[in-house]
Design a protein around this nucleic acid. Structure first.
Lengths: 129, 129
DNA sequence: TGTATTGTTAAAGTTAACTTTAACTTTATA
DNA sequence: TATAAAGTTAAAGTTAACTTTAACAATACA
């Protein structure tokens, strides 16, 4: 019942294991846009935290910040034009199929690693007669 | 039956959709070590090509070139010391569990994207009465 | 209430991963 | 065989993604 709903920049930074300057840098790059206190200090909502998590997740898959910005753009677009929404839909489909390709690649990478491990295990056995 | 077994740098580059200088750069970073012709030009074997593919695959998952170098190191280690092999095994296990974590994250990312798509589809329907 | 801690901005600095350039060599082809 | 295309190295240049610094403001707490 006692879940925090707002965080200071250093609180959020340590939660996500990144530095405060990284968070400021993402803001500069328009990836987040937190509220401010009366004294001009940043306050982050749970939504901001979720967004940061999405950013870090995207990064771990090798998406650039520009690509992540585009993905985020889809989420909070306030546009009501059919054509724009359709463009975004096409973009979303592209990303989803990319994600599926990545999953297959992950399987390949896992196979590679398992093969290496096997090889190492065999060598170990050889040595231990 | 007519599968090529060796490639020039530009052949390989266009197959993998990267530039020749990128391939040279990876060599400088000790990620590959192709043979040379009598005239000192690089020739790449299918094994070299497979290695490059592994490098690119790793990159797409956000591994740095240094990390990829370590992974590759496992594959062609010529060491026969038990302790070294055991260290490598531990490293391989770490990577494999990391890969599994990534797969879970990929699922999360896909869920995010599907939710965005849903949202877009709903908006489209609203507009089209 | 003073002072240590944390925050703010703008600008400069750093690092990884390439890319480009220049000057030259090798290979392919009309 | 000449010349265009492709290759070679070493060094300098570029870009993305941070990180650090400096100078100052807001906040927390003994």
């Amino acid at each position: 019942m006692s879940e925090k709903t707002h965080y200071s920049i250093s609180e959020l930074a340590s939660m996500l294991e990144i530095s405060p300057s990284t968070i400021r840098f993402y803001e500069e790059k328009k990836l987040i846009d937190p509220d401010r206190t009366s004294g001009n200090q940043r306050i982050y909502s749970r939504k901001d935290r979720a967004r940061l998590k999405l950013i870090l997740r995207g990064k771990r898959f090798g998406f650039s910040l520009d690509e992540i910005a585009e993905i985020i753009g889809l989420a909070d677009m306030e546009v009501n034009e059919t054509s724009q929404i359709e463009k975004s839909l096409a973009y979303a489909d592209k990303r989803i199929s990319e994600i599926r390709t990545r999953r297959n690649e992950l399987d390949l990478l896992e196979t590679d690693m398992l093969a290496m491990k096997d090889n190492l295990l065999n060598r170990l056995e050889e040595i231990q007669k």
